[in-house]
Design a binder for these strands. Structure first.
Length: 342
DNA sequence: GAAACGTGGGC
DNA sequence: TGCCCAAGTTT
């Protein structure tokens, strides 16, 4: 056993997290869902989503047989919506090709959409006790600090080095405790801001502690310019119902329901006539709505219009939903927020 | 290999 | 307010 694995396993018994909802089980389905939700998402955010999801879809079969809209609804607000599509797709694959049984082989698990090396390793170790490493943000921080790696951990060269370090430090026993301990240490003691090195079981051999490098390691991600994009959206209200459109996959908020967007608000009258046959309406309100993504800033100019027309025909990819039901459908967070203020 | 993909918390 | 980033993967 390496120094790191020996120390961490001892440390975890006293100071690790033991009562997270997905730690109460060895069910690979439960572990899998939690690991997907936890991708780029903090534990505190995930907990409620996870509980609701597992209550609604307690098994692979229930998820596979669900409508994607219902999966999206439970994912609404979590972000990275391709994750919701991918677990839905994967549940169907497991039902059809694996007889509903989650596979055990690392290589098979890795083939599923949305599962990379870290997620496959987490499932294999937590569900099956198999000796696979993980390399999430927490583990990267612990290793870069311990080994004094001063370059950004996202560089492919560094990433490769970190996977080798991860392999090298694998314990011969208690893999699930070890992997959990590594993440717990990174999330608590070896935190991003000011780490609590006095409480760290690795400090005696930690290069960053010994050299006072904890402020410069981990190195920050290189900065990129964040562009501002603008768009025009419309809140179209017919009596108490709002018109929503299904967003294209592969774009932002892919697969979710959202407010219609048009090229320019100058085209609004023509657009409304073409889609709904409307010529008269009341403009109730206009304003702005913001969404800040990690790669761009999105400013949406909205107009809120109202009319009353009975017997509207259904339109492909569009739905009318009652105002009071905006919280019950898979909407992007800023759109849900905007609609909730009506 | 860089960029796309969401949202909320911490400071 | 603004910036950084979190249990990453895909293209």
């Amino acid at each position: 056993m390496s120094f790191i694995s020996k120390q961490l396993i001892l440390w975890h018994k006293l100071y690790g997290r033991h009562k997270l909802p997905w730690q109460q089980t060895n069910n690979p389905y439960a572990i899998w869902i939690s690991e997907i939700m936890l991708q780029q998402t903090q534990v505190s955010t995930v907990i409620d989503y996870y509980k609701k999801f597992m209550q609604r879809f307690p098994s692979i079969e229930s998820l596979a047989n669900a409508e994607i809209d219902d999966v999206n609804e439970l994912w609404s607000g979590l972000g990275y919506y391709s994750r919701a599509r991918n677990i839905h797709t994967t549940a169907k694959i497991i039902l059809q090709e694996y007889n509903g049984i989650f596979p055990q082989k690392f290589e098979k698990i890795l083939e599923f959409p949305g599962i990379g090396r870290t997620t496959a390793g987490a499932i294999c170790s937590f569900a099956y006790g198999k000796n696979y490493p993980i390399l999430d943000g927490n583990v990267k921080r612990v290793f870069t600090r311990f080994y004094g790696i001063k370059e950004w951990s996202g560089k492919s060269k560094v990433e490769k080095e970190l996977w080798e370090i991860a392999d090298m430090n694998l314990p011969t026993l208690d893999i699930e405790i070890y992997n959990q301990a590594l993440m717990d240490l990174g999330a608590s003691v070896c935190s991003r801001g000011i780490p609590q090195c006095s409480k760290c079981p690795l400090s005696e051999s930690c290069k960053s502690f010994l050299n006072d490098w904890t402020k410069i390691i981990p190195a920050p991600k290189p900065k990129r310019l964040i562009p501002v994009k603008e768009g025009n959206i419309i809140i179209i209200q017919n009596d108490d119902s709002i018109l929503l459109v299904k967003r294209n996959l592969k774009q932002i908020w892919g697969g979710l329901w959202s407010l219609p967007e048009i090229e320019s608000h100058d085209d609004l009258n023509v657009w409304l006539f073409n889609l709904l046959g409307i010529t008269k309406y009341k403009l109730i309100d206009s304003g702005r709505c913001h969404a800040n993504f990690s790669h761009y800033k999105y400013v949406m100019h909205y107009k809120h219009i109202l009319f009353n027309k009975l017997n509207l025909k259904p339109i492909e990819n569009y739905i009318w939903i009652n105002r009071s039901n905006v919280g019950k459908i898979g909407l992007p967070a800023p759109i849900k927020k905007l609609l909730s203020t009506l």
